[in-house]
Design a protein around this nucleic acid. Structure first.
Length: 649
RNA sequence: GCCGACGUAGCUCAGUGGCAGAGCAGCUGAUUCGUAAUCAGCAGGCCGUCGGUUCAAAUCCGACCGUCGGCUCCA
């Protein structure tokens, strides 16, 4: 037998017998690696462990505790699940079943099943899967001709597989994976055998359209996840449980911040006093930052004439998101889904000079959009919401600087609220669009250029732009790893034309300005929801609805406690006094559950010394101190983030 | 909107064909207490709504409304 040389990731060479596989290599390198290995990267490409190695190949063994390794485990688990379903429900047709990672689920498989699946079915399927795993059936890969694959799936009556087969580009190889008697069209790679699935759990059933298109048939999707060992699975399930506790809807109820009422309607938020207080604080900070960044505040009405929305293109391109018109003295009016036409009218209220540009109008504008009932989700997806909107009117030569200014502004705001991880996307031209292709290209290039100049990494979100122009989106993840768009910066070359907005240029000619639409926090509702989850309800002292709870030990300390409350109010600190006839520990528990940053304990000792004993929500007793010192401490802790240092670009 | 699950007291939930329950919250009283739940009593329900099956329905069936998990869609 001839020998082959394999290059390891550290650059060293390793000698193996010809015909050895990646699994042989892993076992030779170390016993534990042989056990943990789930796949191999051969010359950078993820492959089966059973792939024979060729001389001179660079090989990296992939273990189950890595993201790539888990993907392989989960993908294999999806196959095992499909096999189990076929065995239990032979009439069911299989479709697709990839590994995913949305923070909860690790894989799914979509089935065409008349009767759907029940929770009970999941248990049976799980049991059946475990049997297949216990048999430790090998996964085998086979590359076949299209004709052979087509014959195979046609005989099996797997029409969806035939459709997928036809979608594989001509040049590409068609591969099949088989374990036991289940064969699936699949690119791979897979585990060497089913026994390598050490821990899995089926999680939920859901509906999903074939190929993600609502015109297609609704399939039954089963979600599950799988890990390299039982401990990792358990840890994951606990993490998901933990994350549910910081769901903003749960927190909103516990902390009495907001609610929804079926009497009012779905997706319409009722802000309770404490939630409203937080919102007001966010809005105040937002307003100040906008003055700092050179914006002018405006207000606009909630409805406008149909003609206005016709002109803006909303009735042609956004109608499905707008509510039915209402009639006022014979004229149709629409509830606004966006603020732009109003800001444009403010711009047009007089003749503008190039000297005025850029002109930046900002507004906390409440808009109403029709959302299908099934998509409503707490504060994160509602029907009426307040955008922190603005429209910037500028000359073409100012566009780049304005986009960069928006980026700097949004990062200042988001960081002030404690966010540091974002996903940035550039969304390109959608199917339904207005305007010229060359304008779209120019604007898209401007957005990418601004991001590149700011050295910000971004991804492309193809076809996700708004009908009037491309945009930069910045997304923040929620407690369950779901991604939510907050910031959006959109270039609009369409409305300036439609509304014929202009300014008088240096040479006394009329010119058309560019428009930038942008919302930085996105909407007050969504931002508040994401913020709540981010802090698990324990909002930083500067935006906490109540900053300090004053806790007298007995009624005897009430007079002094009231004095302390008055002092706090004078200092503009948000304080409440717990006058109830309860034990101190009870009051502390309540304040703690309300996640109030400070609890000031007042007993006889404190009265004697005219001081207080603060306890933080972290559970720390700061000890008896003079009132003035406690006030200073809290003021320090509750200080607003610093004003931005604006750099002109 | 589509697929599926779930709707019982203000909240969290038990009750699967035979008298509607618990804990917390609320009210009343007692207790005056030092860092995460003091005790007792009281009150609170058209079991989402409407219809059907049954001697009998919170429980079984259907429709509608709402919520939740997905899908399509979006800040």
């Amino acid at each position: 037998m001839s020998q082959i040389q394999i290059r390891l990731p550290d650059g060293s060479m390793f000698q193996l017998e010809g015909g050895s596989t990646a699994l042989d290599l892993a076992r030779k390198l170390s016993r534990s690696l042989g056990q943990k290995a789930v796949a191999a990267k051969i010359d950078g490409k993820l492959c089966d462990l059973t792939t024979p190695l060729s001389d001179g190949a660079g090989v990296e063994v992939v273990t189950g505790d890595t993201p790539e390794g888990r993907e392989v485990i989960r993908h294999s688990a999806a196959h095992v699940m499909a096999a189990a379903v076929k065995k239990l429900f032979p009439v069911v047709k299989v479709t697709i079943g990839p590994a995913v990672d949305d923070g909860v689920n690790g894989f799914y498989y979509d089935f065409d099943n008349e009767r759907g699946f029940t929770e009970e079915d999941l248990e049976n399927i799980s049991r059946q899967m475990q049997q297949e795993i216990d048999k430790d059936l090998p996964f085998t890969r086979r590359e076949v001709s299209r004709e052979e694959a087509r014959r195979l799936f046609a005989e099996a009556g797997e029409s969806y597989k035939l459709e997928l087969l036809d979608a594989i580009p001509e040049g590409e190889k068609v591969s099949l994976y088989q374990h036991g008697d289940f064969v699936d069209l699949c690119r791979g790679p897979h585990l060497p055998s089913t026994g390598a699935i050490k821990a899995f759990r089926l999680l939920s059933v859901a509906g999903a359209y074939w190929r993600g298109d609502s015109r297609n048939r609704m399939l039954a999707r089963i979600y599950g996840t799988a890990f390299e060992d039982k401990k990792a699975l358990q840890a994951h399930l606990e993490r998901v449980e933990e994350a549910k506790k910081r769901d903003h809807r749960t927190l909103g109820k516990q902390l009495d911040l907001f609610s929804f009422s079926p009497n009012v309607g779905g997706g319409l938020v009722l802000w309770h006093p404490r939630g409203a207080r937080v919102r007001a604080l966010i809005e105040e900070f937002w307003r100040q930052s906008h003055f700092d960044y050179g914006y002018q505040l405006v207000y606009s009405p909630h409805i406008g004439r149909a003609d206005l929305w016709q002109k803006s293109g909303h009735l042609d391109f956004y109608r499905q998101n707008m509510y039915s018109p209402m009639e006022i003295e014979g004229n149709p009016f629409f509830l606004k889904p966006m603020n732009c036409p109003f800001h444009i009218e403010i711009y047009k209220s007089k003749l503008r000079s190039y000297r005025e540009l850029p002109l930046r109008f900002c507004e906390l504008g409440t808009v109403y959009r029709y959302e299908a009932s099934g998509v409503l989700h707490g504060l994160l997806r509602v029907r009426g919401f307040t955008q922190d909107d603005a429209h910037i009117f500028c000359r073409e030569d100012q566009l780049d600087a304005e986009v960069r200014r928006c980026l700097a502004h949004t990062f200042y705001l988001l960081r002030s609220f404690g966010f540091s991880q974002f996903d940035i996307y550039v969304s390109t031209r959608p199917e339904k669009f207005v305007g010229e292709l060359k304008d779209w290209e120019k604007a898209t290039a401007a957005l990418k250029g601004a991001l590149e100049e700011e050295k910000l990494a971004y991804q492309i979100d193809p076809g996700e732009g708004v009908f009037y122009g491309p945009k930069i989106d910045i997304k923040i993840r929620d407690s369950l790893g779901r991604s939510w768009q907050c910031t959006t910066v959109q270039i609009d070359f369409n409305n300036p034309r439609r509304f014929e907005i202009e300014y008088v240029d240096r040479d006394n000619h009329r010119a058309q300005p560019f428009m930038v639409h942008r919302a930085l926090l996105g909407s007050m509702e969504r931002f508040f929801g994401v913020l709540l989850e981010h802090y698990a309800g324990a909002l930083p002292a500067w935006i906490a609805p109540v900053q300090v709870q004053v806790l007298p030990v007995t009624d005897a300390q009430l007079p002094f406690a009231r004095e302390v409350l008055r002092r706090l109010q004078q200092e503009n600190l948000r304080a409440e006094l717990d006058e109830r006839n309860e034990k101190l520990s009870f009051k502390i528990r309540e304040a703690q559950l309300q996640k109030i940053p400070h609890m000031w304990v007042i007993g006889q000792r404190e009265v004697d010394q005219q001081g207080v004993s603060p306890r933080t929500r972290a559970g720390k007793d700061l000890g008896l101190m003079p009132l003035a010192e406690a006030v200073r401490l809290l003021q320090q802790e509750a200080a607003r983030p610093e004003r931005p240092r604006i750099q002109e670009v």
